[in-house]
């Protein structure tokens, strides 16, 4: 029981970290970035290259990964999303294609065999009969810190409030003197950085492989669908629903079914309430 509780909490923390960057773009730019999970993969591989191939310190690997993710996000916004002028269908299609291109690029550079990352913090921790790797504990703690930081950033800073304004009404925000283009660029940058960092933790939790992006993409999608148009708190709640569902189904039912409930949740919520559990009827 305690095992389930602790593992559920830890996994949910990781999932929240995975989903938050995706939610951020969806709520500010109203587009689905299907290449989002590529940031995770790129982040993981860069970390692998810097730390395990070049032998540099882990923190350097993380910083480089985050910076590259950031850059990638901003580049994508400038080169793809902006020229498509917010055409949702076009953005979805082209980001999906890009995701596969990036996957193929990874295969070209690193070949397609799976790679194991050394744990970021080695060792285990025994608590109340349950065993927890320090690795995922770190991931969860970092995730909580980042979500807290992001919450503060969006609520309290000037840029963060501008992001909120753009997410509510991009045209209105522009009229009020907010540079929506700049805000979008920043959001894509932050999302890229968060994705890359999540990727490092996700890869150390599972493994590095060129098709590791599909699972986190589905998780992120589930969080956005179930949470409605994303708030950070909503992301956190839904990440916990999914995380616990997965742990419970793995321990109590069958390990093979771990992803099934996430899909059923997505489909079920869309049937019952197409705008998500926390969505609202829009005006007009």
């Amino acid at each position: 029981m305690i095992q389930i509780l602790i593992q559920g909490l830890l996994l949910s923390g990781l999932y929240a970290l995975i989903a938050v960057g995706f939610t951020l773009i969806f709520s500010v730019g109203r587009v689905l970035n299907l290449a989002y999970a590529s940031y995770l993969m790129v982040g993981g591989y860069i970390y692998f290259y810097v730390v395990q191939t070049q032998g540099m310190p882990k923190i350097v690997g993380m910083v480089v990964a985050v910076l590259m993710g950031c850059l990638m996000g901003m580049l994508m916004y400038r080169a793809m999303v902006k020229p498509l002028k917010g055409d949702h269908v076009a953005v979805e299609i082209s980001t999906l294609i890009l995701a596969v291109v990036i996957q193929a690029g990874i295969v070209l550079l690193f070949n397609d065999s799976a790679k194991i990352l050394h744990p970021i913090l080695p060792g285990v921790w025994h608590v109340g009969g349950a065993t927890v790797t320090l690795n995922i504990l770190t991931a969860t703690v970092v995730s909580w810190l980042i979500l807290g930081g992001l919450y503060w950033f969006v609520r309290k800073t000037h840029t963060g409030r501008a992001m909120q304004a753009v997410s509510m009404d991009a045209k209105g925000a522009t009229v009020c003197g907010v540079d929506a283009d700049r805000i979008n660029l920043i959001t894509w940058g932050i999302s890229g950085g968060l994705g890359a960092l999540a990727g490092v933790f996700f890869a150390s939790y599972t493994q590095l492989s060129p098709n590791m992006w599909v699972t986190p993409l589905i998780i992120a999608v589930a969080v956005v669908i179930v949470g409605g148009i994303g708030s950070i708190v909503g992301t956190l709640i839904v990440a916990h629903i999914i995380g616990f569902m997965e742990i419970i189904s793995t321990t109590l039912i069958a390990a093979e079914l771990r992803g099934v409930f996430t899909m059923l949740l997505i489909i079920g919520v869309l049937i019952i309430s197409p705008k998500g559990l926390f969505g609202r009827e829009e005006l007009g």
């Binding site: 587009v31 689905l32 949702h88 269908v89 979805e92 599909v214 589905i218 999608v221 589930a222 669908i225 069958a254 093979e256 079914l257 992803g259 099934v260 899909m263 059923l264 997505i266 489909i267 869309l270 049937i271 197409p274």
Partner: peptide, 28 residues
């Protein structure tokens, strides 16, 4: 039928979820 109720981006996501669901169910 469920996809009927949703628009645009959500439609793409439901169909993706259906495919992944099928992938996992077929094996189990």
């Amino acid at each position: 039928l469920p996809a009927l109720r949703v628009k645009g981006s959500y439609f793409a996501l439901v169909t993706l979820a259906f495919m992944e669901l099928m992938y996992q169910l077929v094996q189990v």
